[in-house]
């Protein structure tokens, strides 16, 4: 009796062991993380949120890096060659990318995160089409356009070809479009959805997991968006002006009703002339701008000088084009955004 009990128990145990082992190896084979390359740190963070343990993310332009003037390294070429998915911002943000993808012989899928975003133009740029069209024509091109083909063709006709050149294949294009779409949380939602869709296409086995994580992330994004609107809504509109040394907050300003006055243009390289600085000071004095902010990738000296001369307050750092290193508040996208909102609100409230 005992022996047969033992024998049966043993057999069951063995069967369980074998099954588990079989399932285990099967699962292991299925669970190899998808290699993904993200062009810069903000996208990298988003991909990590949506992909979780199912993806292995490499970021090209790392924390505190400057994606406008990035020069790819040989290591980047290797990373890209191994990847199955490339996540880029688009809107001419990564002008150095086409050469890199070519050098790497990249055969995977590319997803443009800003696909479907309403692209903003810079104010005061000599337009190819200055009047009224600003918001209508600025759609990022990509697969899966929602409009009917009719409108699409129409837009193609009237449109200035430059509108459609501006994605990652741009290269050498004059910067009229503002690429910093992630500074508006509603756009971030679009980014996340695009990323989730792309991940699901490349790795259908885990599509459900991606979908779930994306939903959770979007919920957090939307909650923060609501909080930001409330915060800025509570501030006197006349005080909602800041001077920042980087022209990267156009979308932010449009979304939350804050006017950003730049010290240097979009390019982080130009040396300002005395005339520019004088104009900014005159404007700050005239419009009584309450606060100045300094970026994590531009020079703070100039901004401090303007603060000294105008009596405006120098706020803390704002994160614009890149996340910070781990351990600092701007290490994740949500963290960075929350930090920016808090800093701006605190400075403007005073």
């Amino acid at each position: 009796m005992k022996r047969s009990g033992l024998g049966r128990g043993l057999r069951m145990a063995l069967a369980a062991l074998v099954t588990t082992a079989g399932l285990g190896t099967g699962a292991a084979a299925l669970a190899a993380p998808v290699p993904v390359v993200a062009s810069f740190s903000i996208l990298g963070d988003m991909v990590r949120e949506v992909g979780g343990e199912n993806v292995s993310v490499t970021t090209l332009v790392g924390p505190d890096g400057d994606a406008h003037t990035y020069e790819p390294t040989p290591a980047n070429v290797r990373e890209l060659a191994r990847a199955r998915l490339l996540v880029v911002n688009g809107i001419d943000f990564e002008t150095w990318l086409p050469r890199l993808t070519q050098a790497a012989g990249f055969k995977g899928t590319t997803v443009v995160a800003a696909d479907g975003v309403k692209v903003r133009r810079f104010a005061g740029e000599e337009g190819h089409d200055a009047h009224g069209h600003d918001h209508d024509d600025g759609h990022a091109q990509g697969a899966g356009h929602d409009h009917g083909d009719h409108d699409h063709d129409h837009d193609h006709d009237h449109d200035h070809d430059h509108d459609h050149d501006h994605d990652e294949a741009g290269g050498g294009h004059h910067h009229v479009m503002d690429p910093h779409a992630w500074q508006d949380l509603r756009n971030a939602v679009i980014y996340v959805r695009n990323i989730a869709r792309a991940l699901a296409a490349v790795d259908p086995a885990n599509a459900q997991a991606y979908g779930k994580r994306a939903d959770a992330y979007v919920a957090r994004l939307e909650a923060l968006d609501a909080r930001a609107r409330a915060t800025f809504g509570a501030i006197d509109p006349a005080r909602r002006k800041v001077v920042s040394s980087h022209d990267a907050f156009g979308y932010f300003g449009d979304a939350y009703g804050v006017t950003f006055i730049p010290v240097e243009g979009l390019s982080t390289q130009g040396e300002p002339s005395a005339a520019e600085v004088a104009r900014i000071i005159a404007q700050v004095r005239r419009e009584k701008v309450p606060a100045l902010f300094v970026e994590n990738i531009s020079s703070p000296r100039l901004v401090e000088q303007i603060a000294r001369e105008t009596g405006a307050k120098v706020g803390g750092t704002l994160y614009s084009d890149a996340l910070s290193r781990p351990g600092q508040p701007g290490a994740t996208y949500l963290g960075m955004f929350e930090w920016n909102v808090e800093q701006l609100a605190a400075a403007l409230r005073r």
Binding site: T69, T268, Q269, S299
Partner: peptide, 14 residues
């Protein structure tokens, strides 16, 4: 970034 390089090479007299 190259901004820093620019500032080292060209200064910030303003």
């Amino acid at each position: 970034s190259s901004t820093d390089l620019m500032h080292v090479l060209f200064g910030t007299v303003l």
